[in-house]
Simulated scan of single mutants.
Amino acid sequence: MATKAYAALLRGINVGGSRKVPMARLRPLIEGLGHGDVRTYLQSGNATFTSGHGDEESLAAELSAAIEKEFGFAVDVIVRDHAYLASVVDACPFPADSLEGRQLHVTYFSGPVAPERFASVDPAEFTPEDFRLGPRELYLYAPDGLGRSKLGAVLSRPALNRGLIATSRNWNTVVKLAEMTGA
């Protein structure tokens, strides 16, 4: 199997003083699984690496199990390859070049997302906020940022995301991870 570049997106770590996963400990953990070129980005659970074995799902499961063993708590992990990450950047339905990174977010899902899942959410009720679905991602335009987004709060409800792992990143991080896996 040829070596491919991936990003691992860890959900819900290093927030509010709990579930600490120091990036300085995450890098050697990933290397110990046999992966190369390991780098981390920010403290919010983003790592890139290369691997010649496995697929996105098996790599995510492997990393999640290793984190639980090392740190003593379960962490949901989504792994995506460079081609997918670049396609998310290229397919952005909003004018990313004219927005601040904090105004645009992508929620990555562990599997495909049918439009019916979000049919009960009427974007017109949240104007100027808006969202669009991709195959395994959701783009959110929140002009006042995610922390103040009423639409973001509705879209993150557990009922809408049932059966899937979902984790969000701001546009700056989305672009950076695509760049890091493409180098």
Rank of each mutant, 00 (worst) to 15 (best):
L133E: 09
S149Y: 06
Q43Y: 03
D144V: 08
F126S: 09
V77L: 06
E57K: 15
D55N: 15
T173W: 03
L151W: 05
R157G: 14
G101P: 04
E31Q: 13
L26H: 01
P112M: 14
G111R: 11
E70N: 00
M23K: 01
E137I: 08
L104P: 09
W171H: 10
N46Y: 01
Q43G: 01
F73H: 05
G111C: 07
T50Q: 04
V79H: 10
A65W: 03
A114K: 14
F71K: 00
E116D: 15
P128D: 07
S168Q: 11
S110G: 15
S44C: 01
I165R: 11
D76I: 04
D144P: 07
P112Y: 13
V113N: 00
E116T: 12
I165Q: 06
L133D: 08
S51H: 02
A65N: 06
G145M: 11
M180Y: 13
Y6A: 05
S110M: 00
Y84E: 11
Y41A: 04
I67S: 02
E31P: 01
Y141N: 04
G45I: 05
G54K: 03
T50L: 04
I78P: 12
F118C: 12
L10N: 03
I67N: 02
R11P: 08
V106T: 11
T107W: 14
S64M: 07
G182K: 11
V89N: 08
